[in-house]
Design a protein around this nucleic acid. Sequence first.
DNA 1: TTTACTACTTTGCTATACAATGTATTAAAA
DNA 2: TTTTAATACATTGTATAGCAAAGTAGTAAA
Lengths: 109, 109
Amino acid sequence: MENTVDNVKSQMRKGVLEYCILSILNKKDAYASSIIDELKGANMIVVEGTLYPLLIRQKNQGLLTYRWEESPQGPPRKYYAITEKGKSQLAEMDAAWKEIVDTIEFIKK
Amino acid sequence: MENTVDNVKSQMRKGVLEYCILSILNKKDAYASSIIDELKGANMIVVEGTLYPLLIRQKNQGLLTYRWEESPQGPPRKYYAITEKGKSQLAEMDAAWKEIVDTIEFIKK
DNA sequence: TTTACTACTTTGCTATACAATGTATTAAAA
DNA sequence: TTTTAATACATTGTATAGCAAAGTAGTAAA
């Protein structure tokens, strides 16, 4: 295992990614490439091989649905939308995230 | 995969754990059971099967050292201490953590 | 009809959290 | 003196998930 900054970040991303996806889709429907762009804009690099399986997992869990939509240029896009179940899961994640942030703060003291 | 609150938390813990351990040992030397207690006190449940391999990993990476110390009751304890390399890694993790917290905030807006 | 671009998908690898189980030391109880 | 309880360190096997790399396919411009 390497020991770079990227590695540290990559490790920390684990588990938080699912939370990010649901949060993004809670604002508005989106397709994979646009989600990657949004994450990139938020300083979090995610690759396709990570995102696609994650979206499929969340869809299979009933947290998301999707629909096909024509693209103005290129192949059709798979737009994902958050479900009620997804929103409820997101609420749990909000709480879990707050708890972890608090935990880190507590430990740092 | 189940879908409980605990599961969500468990996912989020991934990658943050290493950061917690270094942060705790940056305050003072400690042995495994005391680290588990401190994490429990900070609302983060960790089991032995998780912590021991992690400590060994970090030791092998040169982030930690250890020494044996007699216990007032029971078998001797393996006290871990953070190294200079560990402190430098911790500084990187501080930055990575801040970045992730910022990312979540940004996405939530 | 070939090239470029966009978009979705899959495969193989590796790392790691965790449950479960095992080993060992110490001291008190029987 | 043997057994039991408590403490502490360690390992094994399993499942999950991020990622690199390679693959498939639709659309439109050259």
